[in-house]
Amino acid sequence: MDLSRSGRDSGDIAIPVREVSKSSKSGKESGDIPIPVREVKSSRSGKGVPPVVMAPTIRLGNAPQAAGWKRGVGIIDLILRVCAITATLAAAAVMGTTSQNLPFFTQFFQFQASYDDFPTFTFFLAGNAITCAYLLLSLPFSIVCIVRPHIVGARMLLLIFDTLALALTMAAASAAAAIVYLAHNGNPNTNWPQLCQQFNEFCPRVSGAVVGSFLAVFILVALVILSAAALRRN
C-alpha cells in the first residue's frame, strides 16, 4: 500500500520518520564523553554516623619509672624531716635549759644569765618549737607521698608550709646569731662588754643551739627543693 499516495489523496500530511539508532550504551560510537562524578560525604548531614574518636597515645614505659623516682624523693623527704625535727628539738631544748650564775663577793649577791633575759633568745626558742611541732605533724603527709607518689595536693601543702617554717626558723636563728656574736666580741662603740669572758658556760650552749637551728634551716631548704622538683615532674 502506498502511503504517500493515499495521503495525498486523502489530504493528510505525511511525516517522515527517521530511524534513530540505539547507541547510548556505547559512549564512543555516539560521541558522549563520560564525566566521572566523585561522591562527597558531608559530616554535617550524617546524623546517625558516630564521630571517630582517636584514642590518646599513652606511654606505659615511663609511668613506672616516674613513680619510682617520686617514691624515692618521698623517702628522702621523710628522712630529712626526721633530721630537721631532731635539730630543731635539740636547739629549743638547749636554749630553754641554758642559764648560769656567777658568784660575786658572796653567794647572796650573784650575776645571772638566762635565755629569758634576752627577748631574742625567747623568740628563738618559740620559733624552733613551732617548727619542730609542724615537722611532727607533717610526717603523715610525707608518708602519703611515698604510698601515693602521684598525689599533688599533699605535696603542694608540704611545699607551702615548709617555706613558712623555713622563713620562721631562719629569722629566729639569724636574730639569735647576732646576739651571740655581740656576746662573744662585744661592741666598744656602745659599751657592750664581752659577756662570754665571764659566762663561759652560757655562751657555748647558746652558740650550739644557734648552730643546730641553722642546720635545720639547711634541711628545710633541701625539703623545699625536693617538693618543687616532685611537683615539676607532675
Rank of each mutant, 00 (worst) to 15 (best):
L137E: 14
L137V: 06
L137D: 11
L137W: 05
S138E: 14
L139Q: 09
P140L: 10
P140E: 08
P140V: 10
F141H: 10
F141P: 03
S142I: 07
S142K: 07
I143A: 13
C145G: 07
I146K: 02
I146Y: 02
V147H: 15
V147K: 15
V147D: 14
R148Y: 12
P149S: 05
P149G: 04
P149F: 02
H150W: 08
I151C: 14
I151K: 05
V152E: 09
G153R: 09
G153N: 11
G153A: 15
G153W: 07
G153H: 08
R155E: 10
M156L: 10
L158Q: 07
L158T: 03
L158W: 03
L159D: 14
L159T: 13
L159A: 15
L159C: 13
I160D: 10
I160R: 15
D162M: 04
D162Y: 04
T163C: 11
L164E: 12
L164Y: 09
L164V: 10
L166G: 05
A167V: 13
A167L: 12
A167W: 11
A167N: 13
L168W: 08
L168G: 09
T169C: 14
T169Q: 09
T169A: 15
M170Q: 06
A171G: 08
A171P: 02
A172M: 08
A172Y: 04
A173I: 02
S174Y: 05
A176Q: 01
A176L: 02
A178G: 08
I179K: 12
I179N: 06
I179L: 09
I179M: 11
Y181S: 04
L182Q: 04
A183Y: 01
A183W: 00
H184Y: 05
H184W: 02
G186H: 03
G186C: 07
G186P: 05
G186W: 01
P188G: 07
P188W: 06
N189Q: 11
T190V: 09
T190N: 06
N191I: 05
N191H: 12
N191M: 11
W192L: 07
W192T: 15
P193F: 05
Q194F: 03
L195R: 03
C196R: 00
C196S: 10
C196D: 01
F199I: 00
F199N: 00
E201F: 08
F202V: 01
F202I: 02
P204Q: 05
R205P: 00
V206F: 01
S207V: 05
G208H: 01
V210N: 01
V210S: 01
V211S: 00
V211Y: 00
S213I: 00
F214V: 04
L215F: 08
L215Y: 06
